[in-house]
Nucleic acid binder design. Structure first.
Lengths: 341, 341
DNA sequence: GGGGTTTTCCAAAGCGCTTTTGTAACGTCG
DNA sequence: CGACGTTACAAAAGCGCTTTGGAAAACCCC
């Protein structure tokens, strides 16, 4: 059933039926009701492609996932972020398009998306420092919003980020208040902006307490379980090991816990650890007293809000850019305790 | 730059330019080359929406993610599966559309996708037993392929699955050969087809060795770390605890390992455990001797192949349905050893 | 050199919508 | 009562592509 059939069935023109369904005023309420009833009865849905062609809007929002050659490391937060964004999209009548793009062709991919009219807007994920994508998208003229920030970018852009610096500063302060002086950092890759900021917060807080950061206690890598394990094991084997460790993700934290236990120590008593917790749905750590002390911020919620942000930019591209900085909660769990003496 | 502009620029008709670019024979090689050069020079890309409207094909494949009311549990394998499928899609010139749909409206969503011409085909994930979606999609007339199987469905359909029954039978046999007689099962939700099959394989193998399955040693739930921990802890606290445990996912396995260690036991010596390993990119467990003995099968590869399968069905809807059963490798790691006596 | 093929191009219709531009019909009001 | 709004509908153009059905030009063969 298409518009033509529906309208001839009703004895009306396509114009009237279209305008009736799209809520225009120049249709009497009587015929509007009649049209709506018929549309419902025949389960009429306008053909998206025709609609998109006619309006110039595809009602699709793209997420570009850069992959490094064939061996793509998928970000563990990807799924929950997508889930959050998807909720907003379906509520707002948008669809979500995910495009895996080789990192060497990313620029071409954005151009192509625009020219082919594939999407109305984009989400930019995992910004790096001085990320070139922001200037590129402005030039192309595709509305977008960034998940995170790109240090070094001066032009204004819309973003949503967790206050990573403050979160890790708070976590560091919390550990210092518990009496810890040697605090390790198991960070993500520091070319990623969020990891860079986390280290800043950590170092600032240490310095504020007169502790000078020790390079031996700072690691960075892809955030896997085995990396967490390796990093913690190595740190604990140092002549002057840390009594507390700051960890960048729950997955790493699982590895850290393993290393601590394998060293014959008890987490929260002999060694304290605080992790950042994105509240991934399959790694939920709630309950009355969570296992891990954590800086917590829902990545799903970030997805929801960021989706809203792009939609707003699509609806009103001339509006000033919007920034949203989410504060992470500091959740006290059982992985921290007073520094042993 | 659109077709009209490009063709007038070349002094040719739209027809000729279109047909030149699409490889039709009734264009001289000289003009084809000229057209291609001009297209490249101006970075011309046909408008997807117009192309889709004209051809009746959208070159988009949908993935429906059912969510249970607002609180959606995202499957941890989701991201890697998508990554795999995405690789095939971009190589084949397809786009991937992900749709979050409330589980109560799933049926309506499929109808709508068809009517609106949004997608050319679909991937069906996480089939349940007697899954109604298969009959529904046949009726609607949308090409699809299923990731997994739906026990109880008699009609033919295209699917790709891991041989879960055999994988878990092999794992069980392996444990029995090591001398284990009391073997626990930490399974996924058994309304999910894969979990059901894994239990079958486990029970069959036990029975083949004259061991009758003990309901006290079998658990099922959403596969989280804390579930693994709880399940293993409870089993190990039994009067006659298991000496080995079969686990349905690496995430659960992390919890199992924690419970084992907290009980003061050593994994691979006091208690053995075998997990299924989907080779999630952020939970990679390789290296010369992996930490976990596992039945291993790459979910990313499954995504790649399944994507190919839908594309084939779209290209040739009348072709007989195709089935592909992947055998999992049994990888010996450090989490198993001879039964203690 | 005329009839038949083959090659190479094009005009125009069509995909299913939205939107612009009319245009009847009906009040309203000085 | 004629000028003027207002209301409720419709014809037709247009979005940017593909495809059908020619048709001119070139070639071939007897």
């Amino acid at each position: 059933m298409n518009l033509k059939q529906l309208s001839s069935l009703l004895g009306l023109s396509q114009t009237t039926v279209s305008r009736a369904l799209n809520g225009y005023a120049d249709v009497s309420e009587a015929t509007r009701a009649r049209v709506q009833a018929a549309a419902r009865a025949h389960d009429y849905r306008p053909n998206t492609r025709a609609q998109a062609l006619a309006t110039g809007r595809s009602r699709v929002i793209g997420h570009v996932v850069p992959k490094i050659s064939s061996h793509a490391m998928v970000n563990p937060i990807f799924a929950d972020f997508i889930a959050g964004a998807g909720e907003t999209y379906s509520a707002a009548g948008y669809e979500m398009l995910i495009s895996l793009v080789d990192i060497t062709e990313e620029e071409k991919a954005y151009h192509s998306m625009k020219r082919r009219g594939l999407v109305d807007g984009l989400i930019v994920s995992a910004p790096r420092m001085n990320d070139p994508r922001i200037a590129l998208l402005d030039e192309i003229g595709l509305p977008y919003a960034v998940h995170g920030r790109a240090t070094g970018t001066t032009r204004p852009y819309s973003w949503l980020d967790v206050n990573n610096r403050r979160a890790f500063a708070r976590a560091t302060n919390f550990l210092v208040d518990l009496g810890h002086r040697r605090i390790g950092l198991v960070n993500g890759l520091e070319k990623m902006d969020f990891a860079h900021r986390r280290r800043q917060g950590y170092e600032e807080a240490l310095r504020a307490h007169g502790i000078s950061p020790d390079p031996e206690l700072m690691r960075q890598d892809e955030m896997t379980e085995s990396y967490g394990w390796r990093a913690a094991r190595d740190m604990l084997a140092l002549p002057d090991p840390p009594t507390a460790i700051l960890v960048s993700s729950v997955i790493c934290m699982l590895g850290v816990r393993r290393a601590v236990e394998e060293a014959g120590l008890v987490l929260g008593r002999d060694v304290s650890a605080v992790t950042h917790d994105d509240q991934l749905s399959y790694l939920r750590d709630d309950g009355p007293v969570p296992a891990f002390t954590a800086t917590r911020s829902s990545v799903r919620e970030a997805g929801q809000r960021l989706a809203r942000m792009v939609i707003d930019r699509i609806d009103n591209p001339e509006a000033p850019h919007v920034q949203e900085l989410l504060e992470a909660d500091l959740i006290i769990g059982r992985s921290t305790g007073p520094a042993p003496r």
